[in-house]
Amino acid sequence: MAALVVLLLALAATGGLYAAFAPASKAQADVTAQSLEIEEGKKLFAVGCSSCHGLNGQGSSDGPSLVGVGTASVDFQVGTGRMPAQQPGAQVPRKKNIYSQAEIDQLAAFVGSLGPGPVAPKAEQYTSTNPEDISKGGELFRTNCAQCHNFAGQGGALTKGKYAPSLEGVDAKHIYEAMQTGPQNMPSFPDTTMPEEQKKQIVAFVRHTTSDEPNPGGLTLGSLGPVTEGLFGWIFGLGTLIAVAIWVAAHTTKAKKS
């Protein structure tokens, strides 16, 4: 009986010790993986980013410091192809992204290690399943976003060559990250001023309004409001009617010449 008790105790002790050590060793592995990722990210950073942002992301006269911008910022800037920047200018445009998601994550890990900042969101944070989110998001969008991005997310002009880009074809994750981090000329909307739930609703509205669903009224003419409508009306409305008038006037009864 005593032997059994000893055995049980020994088993419990082994199990307990294992339980005590196992997570620690897993965490050890995590840290190793993370530091590996940071290492890799640092190499990528040195090649693609350091000429402007400095070898340690401290910034230079050509690019801002990246301490504290967070992983969300890196995921947005690199994921949409804005960074590395093609050339200096009023604003860095969106272009083709040449990094794989794994590489972007490595870069993000490195920049994230420089200081705490907004963290790239998980899919459930920006994926809405509630259809009511679209109308709620629309209301929020018109209050917070439409003054620059236009009512249908088509973008608009800012001062001195800067602009609010079109939201057409932008990933839900990137829209969410843009609100978190406020890239370039955009203000940021941290969770303290705009809760996660509202960001998700805005993403739902933007994805819906810029989707390929047919417009009930026909051609959207760019969803740019009355300017393009006026242009269309002059050219295809009055222009065609004048052409028709010329045609009608050219076809008429002529007095017969005898």
């Binding site: 209050t143 439409a146 009512f151 969803s223 409001g225 009306g233």
Partner: peptide
């Protein structure tokens, strides 16, 4: 061609504006 797509503009609220 669509003209004045009011459903896309949303209802008027004095605190909102679109470019």
């Amino acid at each position: 061609a669509s003209i004045n797509p009011i459903w896309a503009y949303g209802p008027y609220r004095p605190d909102q504006v679109s470019t």
